[in-house]
């Protein structure tokens, strides 16, 4: 197990592993997105109160879920960067940030469109704690990327950004539990643990699962691609990159 982790931390190994994984991830993303979208938008039953607007759920819920998960990936990778100084962890964090910011943005936009039809005549409700904390999460992503870009020295950027990411983790439980701690317009969580089976009917639950998988695969795919680019850039003077490039030219 530990040997595998050490191997994973080595750039050439990671590069080779990811080039083998990427095609599979691409296929998985494509299938789950296409099937999930068609199932969710056309075949799943519409909600008896919300009619067809409830179908926004198939985009909104996975995007919001992974906007938080990706932040936790960044924070965990940041902790690894600070403690063990593994360069690859920092690259994974840096590669994840723009994707996480996009997911957060998607969650905010779809949520606002959904809220417009369901909560009445408003796109945005300033008093709602979940909306506020998700917006703060978006700002945190932007700040993280800005700090990452501000340093010329990549290593120092990595460690400074890691500290910021860890400080921002305070916000994650606030988003997650905001719907339970404060009375808010946003509905409570339906997707947790055993309740999930009871609160949402299978015909709507399975396409939702599928869309969650699709968002996860899509994130993994983009993350690997971004990380590979960053890896080549930061390792461009190392022998394995040069060997690979010359081999590629020869072939």
């Amino acid at each position: 197990m530990w040997v595998w982790f050490h191997k994973l931390g080595s750039p050439p190994y990671f590069y080779r592993l990811s080039s083998r994984l990427l095609p599979w991830l691409a296929v998985a993303t494509l299938i789950s997105f296409v099937v999930g979208t068609i199932w969710g938008l056309f075949y799943a039953p519409s909600d008896y109160q919300q009619a067809d607007t409830s179908r926004i759920m198939y985009i909104h819920v996975p995007a919001a879920m992974f906007s938080m998960s990706i932040y936790m990936v960044i924070a965990a990778a940041g902790a690894v960067t600070l403690i063990w100084r593994i360069k690859l962890a920092d690259l994974v964090a840096a590669a994840s940030a723009p994707i996480g910011a996009s997911y957060t943005f998607i969650a905010l936009i779809t949520g606002s469109l959904w809220g417009r039809t369901m909560w009445g005549d408003t796109y945005w409700e300033w008093t709602d704690p979940r909306l506020m904390s998700e917006l703060i999460l978006f700002f945190l992503y932007l700040g993280y990327m800005a700090l990452n870009a501000a340093f010329e020295d990549r290593r120092r950027a990595a460690r400074a950004a890691a500290v910021l990411a860890l400080v921002g983790v305070v916000n994650i439980p606030i988003i997650h539990y905001s719907v339970e701690w404060w009375t808010s317009l946003h509905q409570g969580s339906t997707t947790r643990g055993m309740q999930f089976a009871a609160t949402i009917y299978p015909s709507m639950r399975y396409p939702l699962y599928l869309m969650m998988l699709a968002f996860a695969f899509f994130y993994a795919q983009l993350m690997f691609k971004n990380t590979r680019c960053l890896l080549l850039e930061s390792e461009r003077n190392n022998s394995w990159v040069k060997e690979m490039v010359t081999q590629h030219d020869a072939a």
Binding site: M132, I136, F139, L140, G143, A146, L147, L164, V167, G168
Partner: peptide, 8 residues
């Protein structure tokens, strides 16, 4: 950019 979101 770093500090204001945390002030909210």
């Amino acid at each position: 950019l770093l500090v204001l979101p945390l002030y909210i």
